[in-house]
Every structure is written in structure tokens, then in C-alpha cells.
Design a protein around this nucleic acid. Structure first.
Lengths: 345, 345
DNA sequence: ATGAAAGCGCTAACAC
DNA sequence: GTGTTAGCGCTTTCAT
């Protein structure tokens, strides 16, 4: 059914030379190998005639290098990861790499399965957004000497290559902005996970409060589980709006997905932003354009993150990274009305 | 640096048998090959000790089968394609396949590059959302006997495996709903492309008008180019809202991305939906929840599309598809207020 | 200037 | 029962 692809051998036979010569010529090594000009010409001609395409998998077997990167994100259907994937695809392509992808769904088992699958397929390295509790998986990669880089999040306890946003600074800046604009009772909705990105964002939030001379109340920090987060967030905002005095005058959201869900709830509850509640989101979303007030948000530099992830991974291939590389990408804050001057100010 | 992975040979040496035996045992063929029980036990034990993992690329070379699918979408960062990718990933995994992906950006050259790259990497087959004008690329795949299936869109002129939504019916139903609710001057914003999905959606729109006894006006059908579509749509809606009588009382949108952009413009222009303008969108979006009226939209069955795409591709591998298979997946319409009764009704 | 051959890791037909 | 071996397609060393 499927037509046999033409191999070096086919060309060699047709031209009447050995496969070695064909290989040399087609790899532009005719000079080094001092291949006869006539033969070279003929080989090239036949290669085109037969529409020769190298079998990269055979080459991979030979070299132990496939020029393939395995990308493991939490969920490719989440716009944030989809954007990352897009940028990684671009950067990988620029460098001659192709990308295998998979979604871990924040689940340990899926993550491990993907790692195994990709390794068995001889990817040259992995770009991973690690799942909570996956330290052993990552440690094992280190032990095996597999090149990899963590992206978006990392682990405190494990020293690895990692590319992340400057989460602490981003959230610190955001909360400082709210304080500057007169908010005093600032809450945060975050995921209940020990991963560093969340930890750092929370730390940034708390440090900003402290620096602003505001005493932190533990009930201000609302952690929701990843599974079923939509319902949890809806419930949280129900509570907030039901109580006459919610005890909170502003909210920061720890991620893209939390932001969208929380804004949905705020919108449907009819909570006035920023009059009743100041708001700062994480990451962009098309949804912001529909909110009645423009949303202040933290903008991560996805392109820089992706580029750095791919590049440092490639450096690892080349054995350049003797030590772990830790890249912190600054974020910016895009100011809108949602964090505007507080009524009490 | 990277620790050498253990191969069959390593195990064979350690146990003191040939690689053949190891291969048989590790592939569960000890019975057929009548391997001695003692040897089998020992081999299994050592395999675990050495943490043996098969090199799938060597196996691929041997069999000419890599258990890899190449997925080419227009843009992985577009939520619609990201959702498709997610579902394809799931279905592929269920069947033991891994997915390579790439974005064509609706560009012929990128599409061709991706096809070449994937073929050179010996993917077993391709799932493609074809680009306008890529018929020759697709024809070539057919000629080569490469298994593939087109998804989301196809070509009139080329007979191929294809899995698409019932676009004509979906749009027909949507427009009929508008007509039933009293709208008479129904416009459509579509992409300016000859691809079948767009063609069918437009045909569905026109046929519904005809069936409703409404004479079609060519200015009702607004086609925008994919490149720079955001600006074009904004401009279109400026026009509509500026003219005292726009001559249009309802709009249907041909895709997800068009819907979001158009709704943004409608929102910012303050056009009342459905009082001034009835609206039906294509595909879901988080943004709908922020619109002041709930949006009526056509819901494609992404899971069914993905599953069918993967399955029919796998059938092609197995040589089952002697003829091209054409799968039409029905869509549903989710009714909201945006297509509610027209004032004149 | 060219070719033979080994070898990457795996499988399976075949020989012993 | 077990081992030998050829071969998938490609690269490259070493003869010639």
C-alpha cells in the first residue's frame, strides 16, 4: 500500500556506487571524502529523481540522537500552556527540533507515564511543568543523566535546570500597587499546591503586605484544589458577597484559570470592581475585554520563558551545563481600572 | 554524562545467553520460542535489576512502524485547536500512539515543512487541518500512500479520509432559529477561504435563508482574511453600528475566533443583543459568560471528531480503509438569549 | 576516488 | 531449548 521510501541503497544501486558515497554526497561531505565529481553529480541527480528523503529514525539510531524534545505540560487545552507550547514549538523548530507533547493533568501517574514513553522514544531531552509530588520522578531523571528543564514551576528541594517567571516579584509588585491605591484588606485566591510558582506568588503577596505595614489574616489566603477548582471558586465568591462586610476590599488571583473563574463569579454576583473590590489577575485572557472595567493583570513573558527553556535544554545536550541553570524571567504589570484608587483613599 | 541505557545485549551478557532469548522473554514470547524456565526467570530478574527499557526507535527501524502520529493544526495556541489536540492526545494514548505536533499558521510553506519533517521522522500517519491551497500537498500524500486523515476541513476536489462537523446542517439550523425568532436581515462574518468547512457553513447560511423565504443580499456575507482578522472585524462592526440603519438585524459567526472578536466589538460599541442585533456564535468560549446576554452557539463535538480522526487513521494503518472514509459529526445548538425573539416578531 | 563492513538496538527465521 | 545471524537505514573507519 504505502510506497516504499527510497533509501540510500536504492540510489546506490541505480547509480552503481556504494551507499557510502551516496551518504557522503547527500550530506555535503563530498569534499572531505574526495568524491569524484562525476559520481557526485549523478548521485545528486538520482536522489532528486527518486525524491530521496533521509530516514531520520535510522540516523537517530546511529547517533543516539533524535532531535526530538518531549514536552509535558499540565494541560494543553489550557490557553496558558497552549501558548507556551506554541512558543516552544517555534523555538524548537528554529533549532531543528521537533516536539512530542503530552498533558499530565497534574497527576503523578500520567506524568510518569509520559516521561517513560518519551524516554523510550529516545527524545533528546524533556521540558516539563512538574506535577506536585513529582520530585522522585525528577530526581530519577537527574540520576539517569537525562537532559531536562523544568518550566513554569520547580522544586525547592531539588536543584535542577528551571525557567520560571519572577513570581515573587510579580505578585509583590501587584499587591504593592493595590496598597498604594488604598486597599488594606487584600485577599488572594491560589491553588493548594506546594509547587514553587504558587509558593513564590503567595510569598510575594505576603511580603508585600508586610512591607506595606499590613497585618496578614490567614483567612485572606484562600487555597482551592486543582480538581474542581471552578466550583470552589464560585463558592468562595458566594461567601464573600453574601456577608455584609466581607472583610476584604481587594483580591489577587494566582493564575490564569483562577482569574477567569473568579471574574466570572464576580461578574455574575454583580460585585462592583473596583468600587467594592479591587482586582488583579494573573496572565491575559480574552475574557478581560468583556469585563465592565479593564483588568489589571500580571503579564508573563511567555516567549522568553519558552525560548530560554528550549535553549537551556539544547545547551544541556551539548554538555555545556555543568551546573544547574536557573532562569528567572521578569513579568510586567499591565494596569487597568480594576486596581484603581480605593474609595477610602 | 548521560548514563548508557541498558540494551538487550547488556542483559544477554550478564545472564550469559543470546540477545534472541532476551528479546523473546521480554516480549512475552517465551512460550512460542520455548525458552527454558530457568533462563526466562533469570532474564526477567536482570531486566528489572538493570531497569531495562526498550529502545522504541530501534524497534521502529526494524518494523518500519513508530507508533507515532503527526498532528498538524492551524495554531495550537487557538483554544479550539488546543482542545482538539487534547482529545487527540487522549485517544492516541489509548491506542498506544504518541503525538508529534506542529502549527501551520494557515501557511502553505509551514504546512509542507511540517509534513516533510514528520514523514522523515517516520510517523505512521498524519492528522491534518489542511491549509487553503494545500491540495497538491495532500494529493502527494495520497500518491505516496501515506496514511492520513483531514480534520475540521477538507477539499471538494480531493477524495480523502476526512472527519468534519456537519457544518452545513449546524449553520442551517442556527440561521433557521434566527428566522423563526423573527430576524429577517441576517448577516454572516466568515473567513475568506475556499476550505470546505467555511464553504459549508456559508452554504448552510444561504440555504437557510432561502428555505425561510428570505432573499440573500451579498453585502450580508462579510468575509475577512485570516491575517489581521481582528482589525477587519472591528472595522466591520464599526460600520454596522455607525450607519443609522445597518440593514442587518442579526449576525452569525463562522468560527470561534471570529465570534470572540465580533462579540468584543459588539460589547465595546454598546450594541444591544438581541434587541438591536441577534447573535449566534460558533464554538464555546469562556468569554461568553461575561457577555450581558447569554450567547447562543453551535457546539461542535470535539471529542467525537478527535476520536474518529485517530480511529480512522489507525484503521488506515491496518489497511482496512480501501476507500476514503468521510465522517460527518453532528453539532448541537446551545440556545441562549442572544438569538431571542426579535422585537418585530 | 571508492567500497566493504561494522554497528546503533531490536526481531525473527533458521540452524543446531 | 538456545544461539546465530541477517537486516531495518544510516554513518564512518579503514582498506584498496
Amino acid at each position: 500500500m504505502i510506497k516504499k521510501r527510497t533509501s540510500l541503497k536504492d540510489i546506490a544501486q541505480k547509480v552503481g556506487v556504494s551507499t557510502a558515497l551516496v551518504s557522503y554526497v547527500l550530506n555535503g561531505k563530498e569534499k572531505e571524502a574526495r568524491v569524484g565529481e562525476a559520481a557526485a553529480r549523478k548521485i545528486k541527480k538520482v536522489a532528486i529523481e527518486l525524491n530521496y528523503q533521509p530516514n531520520l529514525i535510522a540516523r537517530g539510531l546511529k547517533f543516539g540522537k533524535t532531535n526530538t524534545i518531549g514536552l509535558i505540560v499540565a494541560d494543553i487545552s489550557n490557553p496558558f500552556f497552549a501558548m507556551l507550547a506554541r512558543n516552544i514549538e517555534l523555538e524548537a523548530q528554529k533549532n531543528g527540533y521537533t516536539v512530542l507533547f503530552g498533558s499530565s493533568d497534574e497527576q503523578l501517574e500520567k506524568s510518569q507515564n509520559l516521561i517513560n514513553t518519551f524516554l523510550n522514544r529516545q527524545v533528546d531531552g524533556l521540558i516539563i511543568t512538574p506535577v506536585a509530588g513529582s520530585q522522585p520522578q525528577i530526581e530519577e531523571l537527574k540520576n539517569k543523566g537525562v537532559p531536562f528543564v523544568l518550566m513554569d514551576r520547580g522544586f525547592k528541594e531539588v536543584d535542577t535546570n528551571v525557567v520560571v517567571t519572577d513570581n515573587h516579584d510579580a505578585m509583590y509588585t501587584a499587591v504593592k500597587l493595590l496598597i498604594k491605591n488604598g486597599y488594606r484588606k487584600i485577599g488572594m485566591i491560589a491553588y493548594d499546591t506546594p509547587l514553587t510558582h504558587m509558593h513564590d506568588r503567595i510569598a510575594g503577596y505576603r511580603d508585600a503586605l508586610k512591607a506595606g505595614g499590613i497585618r496578614f489574616h490567614s483567612r485572606w489566603l484562600m487555597k482551592v484544589p486543582y480538581q474542581g477548582y471552578k466550583e470552589h471558586i464560585a463558592a468562595l465568591l458566594n461567601q464573600l458577597s453574601d456577608s455584609a462586610d466581607s472583610g476584604i476590599d481587594a483580591l489577587v488571583f494566582a493564575t490564569n484559570s483562577i482569574s477567569v473563574q473568579a471574574l466570572k463569579a464576580i461578574h455574575s454576583k454583580g460585585i462592583k470592581v473596583p468600587q467594592q473590590l479591587g482586582v488583579i489577575s494573573f496572565d491575559e485572557s480574552d475574557t478581560f475585554d468583556f469585563f465592565y472595567s479593564s483588568i489589571t493583570y500580571i503579564k508573563q513573558n511567555l516567549q522568553a520563558i519558552s525560548e530560554n527553556a528550549v535553549r537551556s535544554l539544547i545547551q544541556s545536550f551539548e554538555g555545556k551545563n555543568r551546573k544547574s541553570i536557573r532562569i528567572i524571567v521578569p513579568a510586567s504589570i499591565i494596569k487597568g481600572e480594576s486596581s484603581g484608587l480605593h474609595k477610602n483613599r
